[in-house]
């Protein structure tokens, strides 16, 4: 995960649900290239990436990050309203189904209504993840877990979930 698209994890229900937030800022260069009706908006593709990172961490956490989890399919994605600079966006991901080969997740994206604590729905996204070492095609990948890198571990540490990633680090050292 080279480009973090979530700022922090705010809720974690083990093996079930993960909630993360992202604050959209004008200091993000890509926003200056994306306008709708003259207004700066966050590209929907990057909101999908935020949900993919949130749900991907959730799916990876079930195996304590021993599995390499990659986004394999965007099953459904609907956007009801735009997100713009200054918005706080919430990614709420839930595991629908998980097995040895992969997982499916459902997720909702909300944004905080300006000036209050209420949230309004931005969109819904269903994703499929593959545990690529157990993929049906039988393709082999490097042993090193290249999916979950150091900056992702930083997000876990800030959320008080560092112990989830620590086990991987220790096993990799032993290996």
């Amino acid at each position: 995960m080279r480009w973090l698209w979530i700022d922090s994890i705010i809720e974690h229900e083990p093996e079930s649900r993960l909630v993360a937030i992202k604050n959209i800022s004008l200091s993000e260069d890509h926003l200056h290239d994306y306008f709708v009706n003259g207004h700066v908006v966050a590209p929907f593709s990057l909101l999908i990436e935020g949900m993919a990172q949130t749900a991907g961490i959730l799916v990876g956490s079930v195996s304590r990050f021993k599995e390499k989890v990659i986004l394999a399919k965007i099953a459904h994605a609907n956007l009801d309203r735009d997100v713009t600079a200054g918005d706080c966006v919430r990614f709420d991901a839930t595991i629908e189904r998980l097995d040895k080969a992969g997982a499916s997740t459902t997720g909702v994206i909300d944004r905080r209504v300006a000036g209050g604590d209420a949230w309004e729905r931005v969109g819904t996204i269903e994703l499929m993840f593959s545990h690529i070492d157990n993929n049906m095609a039988g393709v082999e990948f490097p042993e090193d877990n290249f999916v979950f890198s150091d900056n992702f571990k930083m997000v876990l540490e800030q959320a008080g979930l560092a112990s989830l990633a620590e086990e991987v680090k220790e096993e990799q050292c032993l290996g």
């Binding site: 394999a72 399919k73 099953a75 629908e96 189904r97 080969a101 992969g102 499916s104 499929m128 593959s130 993929n135 049906m136 095609a137």
Partner: peptide, 14 residues
């Protein structure tokens, strides 16, 4: 494609 098979399995189960 291959990932669709997993998706189909999950949806049939549900």
């Amino acid at each position: 494609e291959s990932i669709d098979f997993l998706d189909i399995v999950f949806r049939i189960e549900k």
